[in-house]
């Protein structure tokens, strides 16, 4: 596995004086959409600041696609970071904000104009691009920052709470944009509290709590590792009572609950693999018509609840 196409944290710790930012983080983030999930103060922003050089690790090393974070010239040609600081240089219009950032990158005037327009178009702000940013709504400010971070076509896009302040429409558009960027092969790293929305687009998840990474990997894989919480599977079928009675006799099934509409059964099992084999057998034997079988807690939200607890506001 080469580190040249991954974001790698090796034993990284960051302390702000006596306050812990993150501790002993070892991560290797591949391309695709990765969600950073954790309660406030868990170290998500610190991790993002570390991977973009805005903060320096107290110990350990970080590389982004094989590049050192101490080399901004190389790094920021390939990285775009949309921070959660809701602040802008004074007096700029949305267009100037994006354009100036492109000029700083050494991009020629004509190309800078073209790329600025393209990025602003992509976040649907072109109509107000020539208005001062100070007059923008919170959602518009969020989107213009997003435009600034994608304008130079980065290969790594780091987004700190990118859905904050967006209305449902803009939120859906942004999520679609992140998904598209992820599919284009970008590394998209998102921290968000809107778990059910990032859940839809995330390829990987990094769960954080009190500065520690407590789980990382594909959501399904992480869920399988969480043995202490039985897996929940919803089965919609023609004879739920019969299915429930057959399933309940098995040791690995700890609960089988009939759905309130009488059309399904929610099963909690300690061994998902064994359960699916059993289900196949029962369906064939009892001639039950299956409508749907879907994991009910194989998502970021459930992982958050299981690994971090309900204390964190989601």
């Amino acid at each position: 596995m080469t580190t040249n196409n991954r974001i790698v944290f090796e034993n990284v710790s960051k302390f702000y004086g006596e306050v812990l930012g993150v501790n002993r983080v070892n991560l290797s983030v591949p391309s695709g959409v990765t969600s950073l999930v954790g309660p406030n103060g868990s170290g998500k922003t610190t991790l993002m600041n570390l991977m973009t050089g805005l903060a320096r690790p107290t110990q350990g090393s970080i590389s982004v696609l094989g590049l050192s974070v101490d080399d901004p010239e190389e790094l920021f040609r390939r990285v775009g970071y949309c921070t959660q600081f809701d602040s802008f240089p004074k007096g700029v219009t949305g267009y100037e904000f994006v354009y100036q950032s492109l000029k700083l990158r050494g991009i020629a005037t004509n190309d800078a104009h073209r790329l600025a327009k393209e990025a602003i178009d992509r976040v649907n702000l072109w109509e107000v691009a020539h208005r001062k940013v100070a007059g923008y709504s919170k959602g518009m400010r969020q989107r213009i920052r997003l435009a600034q971070s994608i304008a130079h076509h980065p290969t790594v896009l780091v987004l700190d709470e990118p859905l904050n302040g967006l209305d449902p429409m803009a939120r859906a558009e942004s999520i679609a944009l992140f998904e598209a960027l992820g599919k284009e092969g970008l590394h998209v790293i998102i921290s968000s509290h809107v778990l059910h929305e990032v859940d839809k687009i995330s390829d990987q998840v990094v769960l954080m709590s009190y500065g520690y990474v407590i789980a990382e990997g594909e959501i399904h894989g992480v869920r399988n590792e969480v043995k202490e919480h039985p897996m929940q599977i919803l089965v919609r079928c023609s004879q739920p009572n019969l299915l429930a009675s057959r399933l309940f006799s098995q040791d690995h099934v700890v609960e089988a609950k009939l759905n309130h509409d009488g059309q399904g059964v929610l099963v909690r099992t300690l061994d998902a693999g064994e359960f699916y084999l059993l289900l196949n057998r029962v369906v064939l034997e009892e001639d039950i018509a299956l409508e749907a079988v879907a994991p009910a807690d194989d998502d970021v939200n459930s992982l958050y609840q299981y690994l971090i607890g309900g204390g964190g506001k989601v």
Binding site: T52, G53, L54, P72, E73, E74, L75, F76, R77, V79, G80, Y81, T83, F85, S87, F88, P89, K90, S101, L104, R105, G106, Q148
Partner: peptide
């Protein structure tokens, strides 16, 4: 001034040597 206005990071996030 940039620190007070919380805009210094825009410079730091550009591929410009500090």
């Amino acid at each position: 001034g940039e620190i007070v206005e919380k805009s210094l990071h825009y410079y730091f996030l550009a591929p410009v040597r500090r």
